[in-house]
């Protein structure tokens, strides 16, 4: 007679070897392999790296004579760090002791929130970096006058008919605006593309789990 799965389960675990707990050593000092802890570690490392870089760049920018770039970089990256620090605090609030549905939903909400926020930030971040570079070099001292003005002066010698708006060649403004437009357009996409390479499978799996649970709720 065929045995039921209930019997196989009960009888199988009556044998002495079935439920031997593995030895655990120095558990607390071990690196967690859980996804939330990995996110926490990744966030912390990123934030520390951003803070270190923005400080270093600020100092370098003063040394090489582009303080405007350094200051804009520093302010922008500080805002980025503050926003992401808040996101990291939200991650710490996720409770593993709730139902799987609630836990997965909370975790997924956090992921969606951080993707949406960082996608928006990326749309502004890349253009701001570009603008800060342009401004930094434009106002960089070049033998007693800003580099930008010196450059425009040289262009006017070669092309006297160049049309200027507030002392800047129109063609230069058009090119800069085109670059800014492209960076706004692709900034968010670059972030999402980058994130999907690393965590694409994780996000897909999370979605599958949630769909499966949702099917049980309806």
């Amino acid at each position: 007679m065929e045995r039921s799965i209930e019997n196989i389960w009960k009888e199988g675990f009556l044998k002495s070897d079935a439920l031997i707990a593995p030895k655990i050593n120095n558990l607390y000092s071990q690196k967690s392999i859980h996804i939330i802890d990995k996110f926490k570690r990744m966030f912390k490392i990123n934030l520390i790296a951003i803070v270190a870089f923005s400080f270093a760049f600020l100092i370098v920018s003063f040394i090489v004579g582009i303080p405007i770039t350094g200051i804009i970089f520093f302010v922008t990256l500080s805002v980025l760090v503050i926003i992401n620090k808040k996101l990291l605090n939200d991650l710490n609030k996720i409770d593993l002791g709730v139902s799987s549905s609630q836990y997965l939903k909370t975790f997924n909400q956090w992921i969606q929130k951080q993707i949406a926020i960082n996608k928006k930030i990326s749309k502004f971040l890349y253009p701001i970096i570009f603008i800060s570079m342009v401004l930094g070099f434009w106002f960089k001292d070049a033998e007693g006058m800003p580099l930008g003005e010196r450059l425009v002066g040289e262009i006017l010698v070669g092309f006297p008919d160049t049309y200027l708006i507030f002392g800047v060649p129109v063609i230069g403004i058009v090119i800069a605006l085109a670059i800014i437009g492209l960076l706004v357009l692709f900034g968010g996409r670059i972030y999402k593309w980058d994130l999907n390479i690393v965590y694409g499978r994780v996000f897909k799996k999370l979605e599958e789990l949630m769909t499966d649970i949702e099917s049980l709720r309806s």
């Binding site: 859980h34 002791g97 799987s100 499978r201």
Partner: peptide, 27 residues
């Protein structure tokens, strides 16, 4: 509560497979 924690951990545990790519290994 222990069951909930165990289940939630198992559902979302990341581990590196032999090809060094991170997966949920409960596939």
């Amino acid at each position: 509560w222990v069951y909930r924690i165990s289940l939630n951990v198992c559902l979302t545990l990341l581990k590196k497979k032999k090809n060094n790519v991170q997966h949920f290994v409960s596939d």
